[in-house]
Design a protein around this nucleic acid. Sequence first.
DNA 1: TGCAAATATATGTACATACATTTAATGTCG
DNA 2: CGACATTAAATGTATGTACATATATTTGCA
Lengths: 152, 152
Amino acid sequence: MHYMKIEDEIKQPVFQSDYQKGYINLVYTAGWLQQQQQAAFREFDITLPQFNILRILRGQHPKPATVNLLIERMLDKTSNASRIVDKLEAKSLVTRTVCPSNRRAVDIRITDAGLDLLQRMDEGVMKRENGLQNLTAEEAVQLNTLLDKIRD
Amino acid sequence: MHYMKIEDEIKQPVFQSDYQKGYINLVYTAGWLQQQQQAAFREFDITLPQFNILRILRGQHPKPATVNLLIERMLDKTSNASRIVDKLEAKSLVTRTVCPSNRRAVDIRITDAGLDLLQRMDEGVMKRENGLQNLTAEEAVQLNTLLDKIRD
DNA sequence: TGCAAATATATGTACATACATTTAATGTCG
DNA sequence: CGACATTAAATGTATGTACATATATTTGCA
């Protein structure tokens, strides 16, 4: 909604270095992309973390997933997959049953309603998720290389 | 604390394209960097958004800032600068006084304690903020170019 | 076997975000 | 001047994150 050029929007016009600028630019751009997605999600009454968990569950379907598995695969690590699953369960998009072979664990499964929702969302989301449309294929590779290097 | 290579950590081993991979990589790396900072902030009993607002206030000092100005300059836009200022005020790091020339607005100023805190943090934070240490100068420029292009 | 450590999940608290609404002060225009 | 829109900030509610702790089950090993 009020995203513009990095230099204009963050009105600290002078960056101390390309490193600092890169840092801010990175955080800012990631937020920008996420917000794009979030806006698209509103009409489906679902949040980004909820969507991400639903997709993991679809990947497992018809096998169940445990909370642990969700945490492992989530982008934004957190110990609170539990509470996100709460919300999904309240909307009948997933079910929770005690795992028979390990009663500490909980089997979480996506419901038909959940699968339906994802299917309805697929098309629009794919488009968003690419989201890096302005880059050429070569630039996308370059970006990945740089990002991996940052975290080395 | 459990960040690794993007392909390993996100155990969806196959990305559909470098675009999708780039998207995920971008969000993931930004989170990684932010978490690095957050960890450094803990010993100072301050959060990242609180720190960012303090720095904007230092930039204005000794002039006051209004909530509106804070919102304009914040990285993560939000309408809740108000509540972040609440926390800073509770810690006596900022003061809030009604703006004399426009009694709807509030003049927010960083206190000496706030300036002290920032000064103590400066050194360590600078190092973190670079954070892109693994990149060469040229690569940092490249990164900025790519990110700007994404948001075009 | 039995008890301590490890595991799987859930819960509590503080903070932040997103969005809508409220309250107060100021502007505007008939 | 006075009704009404606009602006500035604060508040309410739902959600999510970060971190610590609690609870239940299972495992390992003396």
